[in-house]
């Protein structure tokens, strides 16, 4: 089985400031990887490296067995960022239009087919926002909006879902429902990489943990992470750890 993502001795710096140093890790198909670390520890940079948005200064990155920079099957990756869109504030776009974007990489320059629209309808159904399909994205709550972005990833039939602190600004109840949704997607075989500041959520849901502070402090299954000192080492004595608060 090929790994979904594999990094070997990856180093990346913004100018002189190293963001990620000598990181090696693999994400296998069906994994739920929780990526944690203090603020400014390079989590988002590492995720962007994995997705091929940055090229490493040294080391190699493979996505689905191909070099990440040359990987072209964009529809296999779903991406949900923290403030899922910066234009969401003003641009009149409906939920259905957002989810339909998931089909764009498939369709290229040709017209969307009836089958494309059916897949969009199914994706809306799966995340439970069918009733909101004709609403503007700007009118949704934070939790509903993130569901719309998950639906976009489902519509693109992604095998890999990458989420960068998706529940910032989402109320506790919707957050739980959101993570239940991620769980069921993971059960159906979708590989998930999740950046999350709430370590409790990560240890509850993820089967693999990568704990990062520029360098990798832990990479392995969740049990060995809980037993290790990686957390205190990575966060240091001054670091602020968000504990489980359910």
């Amino acid at each position: 089985m090929t790994a979904v993502v594999s990094l070997e001795n990856v180093t990346f710096a913004y100018g002189e400031q190293p963001a990620v140093r000598d990181v090696s890790l693999t994400v296998d198909q069906g994994d739920f990887l929780g990526l944690i670390g203090p603020n400014g520890s390079g989590k988002t940079t590492l995720l962007h490296l994995m997705l091929g948005l940055h090229s490493p200064d040294s080391g190699s990155i493979e996505l689905f067995g191909e070099p990440a920079s040359a990987f072209s099957e964009g529809e296999r990756i779903g991406y949900v960022s923290q403030q899922a869109t910066s234009r969401g504030g003003t641009m009149p776009v409906t939920v259905r239009e957002v989810v339909t974007m998931g089909r764009f990489a498939h369709a290229g320059h040709s017209r969307l087919t009836e089958a494309d629209h059916d897949i969009v309808t199914d994706a809306l159904e799966t995340v439970g926002i069918t009733a909101l399909a004709d609403r503007q994205v700007t009118q949704l709550s934070g939790g509903q909006r993130q569901r719309a972005f998950i639906a976009r990833a489902l519509a693109s039939e992604a095998d890999l879902l990458a989420l960068d602190e998706p529940t910032v600004g989402v109320d506790a109840e919707s957050r739980d429902e959101f993570y239940q949704l991620l769980d069921s997607l993971n059960d159906s075989g979708i590989t998930i990489i999740l950046i999350e500041h709430d370590i409790g959520v990560v240890t509850d849901r993820a089967n693999r943990i990568a704990c990062l502070n520029t360098e990798l402090y832990h990479h392995g299954d969740t049990e060995s992470f809980v037993e290790s000192d990686a957390l205190t080492e990575a966060y240091g004595t001054t670091g602020h750890v968000v504990e489980h608060h359910h």
């Binding site: 234009r87 957002v98 974007m101 320059h109």
Partner: peptide, 22 residues
Amino acid sequence: AVTYKQLLFITFDEQAARVARL
């Protein structure tokens, strides 16, 4: 008419469009 979809995706969410390899 030909690039409506791509221009919309990039306008709405440039980062996700990059990930989708547009």
